[in-house]
């Protein structure tokens, strides 16, 4: 997995609440057996008309936000389907962090597995960053995972919380499976115990 430590980038404002994973990547694009190449279809039904032409009003089609690396989004971002295609599409487009007041649980987990940092901040701070994002391409936000801060283009600094284990994995680009396999002895011991206590499983 790609490491995440510091990021300085353009943030695109998406104030809509309850942006679901069907919006992020519609199901027609789930028929792939690969992880890559989904960025072109990120937010497909909001981004293109039926003939495949870009809808100019959609934020990521606007010249200022075509290179966005951060999304500032409305509440409950990533709700709905568990599809990891959603963070794959975001990452493939180039989005490395999403800021919102809350995220749906499965999407939140999926982000960390793909080098994307989801940041939860209180409403008034998200509102401030949303306004900042609306300024366009000259307003670059900075995110420092080690320090756990988001800095607006005006220099306002907001502190965020992140789970220490996840932070460690993201900072170092660690592979979960490799880490877990180091604890095989614990898993084996648990299975031996269960074979006696719950043999029907």
């Amino acid at each position: 997995m790609e490491k995440f430590d510091k990021l300085s980038g353009i943030a695109a404002p998406m104030p809509l609440v309850n942006i679901d994973t069907d919006m992020i990547i519609p199901k027609v694009f789930l028929k792939t057996i690969k992880r890559s190449g989904l960025g072109v279809n990120l937010f497909d039904e909001m981004r293109y008309d039926r003939d495949g032409n870009e809808i100019p009003d959609f934020v990521l089609n606007k010249p200022a936000y075509r290179e966005a690396q951060i999304l500032v989004a409305g509440d409950n971002f990533g709700c709905g389907s568990s599809r990891e295609h959603a963070p794959w599409a975001l990452a493939d487009f180039g989005i490395k962090a999403v800021i919102s007041t809350s995220f749906a649980d499965i999407f939140f987990n999926n982000c960390f597995k793909n080098g994307i940092l989801p940041i939860v901040l209180p409403q008034e701070q998200v509102d401030a960053l949303m306004k900042d994002a609306e300024k366009g391409a000259n307003a670059r936000m900075e995110i420092d995972l080690e320090a756990q801060t988001v800095t607006s283009s005006d220099g306002d600094v907001f502190h965020f919380e992140v789970d220490p284990h996840r932070k460690h994995c993201l900072l170092n680009g660690l592979d979960d499976i490799g880490l877990t396999l180091e604890k095989s002895a614990s898993i084996d011991a648990f299975e031996k115990k269960m074979a006696l206590e719950r043999p029907w499983v």
């Binding site: 990891e84 963070p87 499976i177 299975e191």
Partner: peptide
């Protein structure tokens, strides 16, 4: 019982556990 992403599917296939 709960849903998981594909990276977690791979994790469960490989280790029978979830973090």
């Amino acid at each position: 019982a709960h849903g998981i992403g594909t990276s977690e599917v791979e994790h469960v296939l490989a280790t029978q556990t979830l973090i």
